[in-house]
Design a binder for these strands. Structure first.
Length: 426
RNA sequence: GGAAGGGUCGCAUAGUGGUCUAGUGCGCUCGCUUGGAAAGCGAGUGUGCCGCAAGGCACCGCGAGUUCGAAUCUCGCCCCUUCCGCCA
């Protein structure tokens, strides 16, 4: 959600943003509706004022009240006024309904540094780390089979398509990665959380996952028979955590490292990554979430920091990766700018997305009503950001292929040994 | 799943149709007082929307309704608490 005043003053900028993000939104229609809305509000406020004033002539109060015919006359007039008012109010409700709908669909303005482009194919590499292996040896599925770390057959039997079991060293490796990551972030002042994945709808609308023409539509998100949804990321519950709160600027930034199971229907990706554990319906993730002061430079600073944190994790795990700057067409409705970190997957001779770092300015906090009071007592909507810290099982694929030896055994990088308890698998 | 009780201005509470422009206490801010502080006394103390402004309007969990008039009455929903049942 953007400030309607900002939209009024920057209509062309918003249209350009919609073009860049490939979002459909009729800005002129919104402005027309806004004009109508404001006129109606003015008229209704005035009608209410007059009506209120006139009603005072009826107060019984023993003394000043009107009697008999005069009273009946006034009542008749008031009834008529009320009827007119009701009609106007109905009109306003209708107009506001459309206004709200349109407002939810207005995209946030991407940063000027965001390149044009239709899809992730046009994201720009901005840096690389580690040396990529071209001779890949075994692919991760073979490695996991060899070490009895994974069972997708029984996974499908029990869970259905894209189901899986991690077992033995596969299970232990996932746990080790979560623990290592959490501790790494705690050292940087992040508060560890285990967040709920069952979330109420308003959290999804508030973060931009639902409502308007955003990334994910209703079809991409699981919904229970109680109309509670299964979140695809801890970003959603962690942003909901402070909904309707007024913080103080002294307690900002809030830095959270939240572990949660994540659920995605992958409705639009039936043909993609159908084998293995790269794209699954249920996975686990430690997510970084930050609320900071409403300042563009602050957002930039924390965005870079969030990205750096994840790069450090990849480096400690000795996994080659690159960072890409996402193009406009690959940005969500609320995102100002996004970096994806992509780890090298030798068997595909490709970088594959493992992390996604974005900032939103106050797009999410307006929807969620998260404010803070500054030292002068002035109120602001906070800024919000998030980035993946580690997501399993996807990272296992990249991890295993990159750390395999010729005999198929797996080296555990030094930083992880303490958490995994062994130096080697196999 | 069953039963009961609740949601009021930062917190606690009062308020069951017009005097509510929501009272009181606590907290907080400022002032008086003081060598300084405490106490005391006085004043202030929300959010949003519309408006150039003066000002106006809305908000007592949310939404609809009754009424000239709703924190107060009616209906629906949401949330919280307690007890029973079930349960990792």
């Amino acid at each position: 959600m953007l400030d309607i005043k900002f939209i009024r003053d920057n209509a062309e900028l918003i249209k350009e943003a919609a073009r860049k993000k490939h979002v459909k939104i009729d800005v002129d229609r919104l402005l027309t509706i806004d004009e109508k809305r404001r006129t109606l509000i003015g008229e209704i406020d005035e009608m209410r004022r007059v009506h209120k004033e006139a009603s005072e002539g009826l107060v019984p109060a023993g003394a000043a009240g009107l009697e008999g015919v005069d009273r009946e006359k006034l009542l008749e007039k008031l009834r008529q006024d009320k009827d007119n008012l009701s009609h106007k109010e109905f009109e306003l409700r209708t107009v506001e309904g459309e206004f709200d709908e349109l407002m939810l669909g207005v995209p946030n303005v991407p940063d000027p540094s965001v390149p044009d482009g239709d899809s992730d194919a046009e994201n720009q590499e901005i840096r690389k780390w580690g040396s990529v292996k071209v001779e890949h040896g075994k692919n991760y599925m073979n490695l996991m089979q060899m070490h009895d770390m994974l069972d997708t057959e029984r996974g499908a039997k029990v869970s259905g398509f894209r189901g899986y079991f991690l077992k033995n060293d596969g299970a232990m490796l996932a746990m080790a990665l979560w623990n290592f990551t959490l501790e790494h972030l705690m050292k940087k002042g992040f508060q560890p959380f285990m967040a709920p994945s069952l979330v109420r709808r308003e959290n999804l609308v508030g973060t931009g996952w639902l409502g308007g023409a955003g990334n994910a539509s209703e079809e991409d998100i699981y919904k229970t028979q109680d109309d509670i949804y299964l979140s695809g990321t801890a970003e959603v519950p962690m942003m909901g955590y402070h909904r309707d709160e007024i913080l103080t600027d002294a307690e900002l930034p809030k830095k959270y490292a939240a572990f949660s199971p994540c659920y995605r229907r992958e409705a639009g990706s039936y043909g993609k990554d159908t084998k293995g554990i790269f794209r699954v319906h249920e996975f686990f993730k430690v997510e970084q979430v930050i609320l900071c002061k409403a300042d563009h430079q602050e957002s930039i600073k924390w965005h870079e920091e969030l990205t750096k944190n994840s790069e450090e994790i990849m480096q400690a795990l000795e996994l080659p990766y690159h960072v890409v700057l996402n193009c406009g067409g690959d940005l969500g409705l609320g995102q100002v700018k996004k970096y994806d970190i992509e780890g090298w997957l030798p068997s595909e001779k490709k970088y594959r997305e493992t992390h996604s770092a974005s900032y939103f300015h106050d797009f999410q906090t307006r929807r969620l009503n998260i404010k803070y009071r500054d030292a002068d007592g002035k109120m602001h909507f906070a800024h919000s950001l998030n980035n993946t810290a580690i997501a399993t099982p996807r990272i296992l694929a990249i991890f295993l292929e990159n750390h395999q030896n010729e005999d198929g055994s797996i080296n555990i990088p030094k930083a992880l040994q303490k958490y995994f308890g062994k130096e080697k698998i196999g």
